[in-house]
């Protein structure tokens, strides 16, 4: 189902104009949350007959990236240019420039500063989309543009090539990472979960999401994704962490062919031995986690044993992460 909150943003008139069109702040701010990979990723039937690549992100509201945007003061008829710090955040810069080109006539550009959560790119924590989303929000804030999340999603996909749904905060949606389309809004927040997370391959240089082969799922796999979507809907309706963990592990297993997770067998064994409900992975990175239900009696001990066992098996340092249901402050 499509998202219903369609707030309109001011449409800039097309003819040239000597003055900036609306009051701007001298400083725009924005932030975005990261994620811990996906609960589900695959290709889904969108009614067109062609399978649509899409994913359900596992958001981590505690992983926050902020951005600041300072506009250059004078209007310009040249395409806007943005400088970015740190300099290697080129996708964030491209996103800000794209937003200015399409929404702010005669902007000369500005200075963008990104304060990320310190997570490395390429491990699958959404670092890059997080930078891009925070940059888009800071730039939009500067011009008091109230862009709907669908628009942010489209801009993020265009700046990045592939994206995820961090701009939708912790709303659970099935998101087309290459189309920027929300294929299904589950209309439910995720239940609270505890993740024991690790990087399965810390020596790896990171995965370039765009270099991954476009998914070539078989008809059988596309059928399986459909079933997992059914389980996911039931899990969200009933707030069932065990069922979500089943979906996550099944999705990880189907996608091993595409991007194998180092040590997945070890993770599954550790989960089975410590009361973990399932293994969840980043489908375009190296992070993975074992999912626990905070409602399980004695869960704290299970989590501790799990983290210890992961450390022992060479997957340390394991981190205990909480997926909360609170509204995310921006």
């Amino acid at each position: 189902m499509a998202v219903s909150t369609q707030r309109r943003s001011p449409t800039p008139p097309s003819e040239a104009h000597p003055e900036p069109l609306w009051p701007i702040r001298s400083l725009g701010r924005g932030s975005a949350i990261g994620h811990h990979g996906e609960l589900l990723q695959g290709a889904f039937d969108d009614g067109s007959g062609q399978p649509h690549p899409a994913l359900v992100t596992l958001p981590l509201p505690t992983l926050v990236t902020t951005a600041e945007f300072r506009p250059f003061p004078h209007p310009s008829t040249e395409p806007p240019t943005v400088t970015v710090s740190p300099q290697w955040k080129t996708k964030a810069r491209a996103a800000a420039e794209l937003l200015l080109r399409e929404h702010v006539p005669q902007s000369a550009g500005g200075e963008l500063v990104i304060h990320d959560a310190g997570t490395p790119p390429g491990v699958g924590l959404g670092t890059s989309t997080c930078d891009v989303t925070a940059a888009l929000r800071a730039t939009a804030d500067c011009y008091r543009l109230d862009l709907p999340v669908e628009r942010l999603a489209t801009l993020a996909v265009r700046a990045e090539g592939a994206s995820d749904s961090v701009m939708l905060e912790n709303r659970a949606v099935l998101f087309g990472q290459r189309s920027g389309r929300v294929l299904e809004d589950f209309d439910r927040a995720l239940p609270e979960m505890i993740l024991v997370g690790c990087d399965t391959d810390p020596t790896h240089t990171g995965v370039d999401t765009l270099s991954l082969r476009p998914p070539d799922y078989t008809a059988e796999e596309i059928g399986r994704f459909r079933v997992l979507l059914g389980v996911l809907r039931h899990a969200l309706d009933t707030g069932s962490v065990p069922l979500l963990a089943r979906v996550a592990e099944a999705s990880a297993l189907i996608n091993q062919r595409r991007l194998p997770t180092r040590g997945l067998d070890v993770l599954r064994e550790v989960a089975a031995r410590t009361g973990g409900l399932g293994v969840q992975v980043s489908h375009s990175g190296t992070v993975a986690s074992i999912i626990f239900d905070p409602a399980t009696p004695g869960v704290a001990e299970h989590v501790e044993r799990c983290a210890r066992l992961l450390d022992e098996r060479g997957f340390g340092p394991a981190r205990v992460l909480r997926v909360t249901t609170e509204e995310v402050a921006r």
Binding site: E220, G223, R226, V227, L229, G230, H234, A235, P242, L243
Partner: peptide, 20 residues
Amino acid sequence: PDNPLAYALAAEAVAEAVGQ
């Protein structure tokens, strides 16, 4: 093989309604 594959839709309906 499209005969058994068709039942992904039935399995989806079952899973959505009753879960495990």
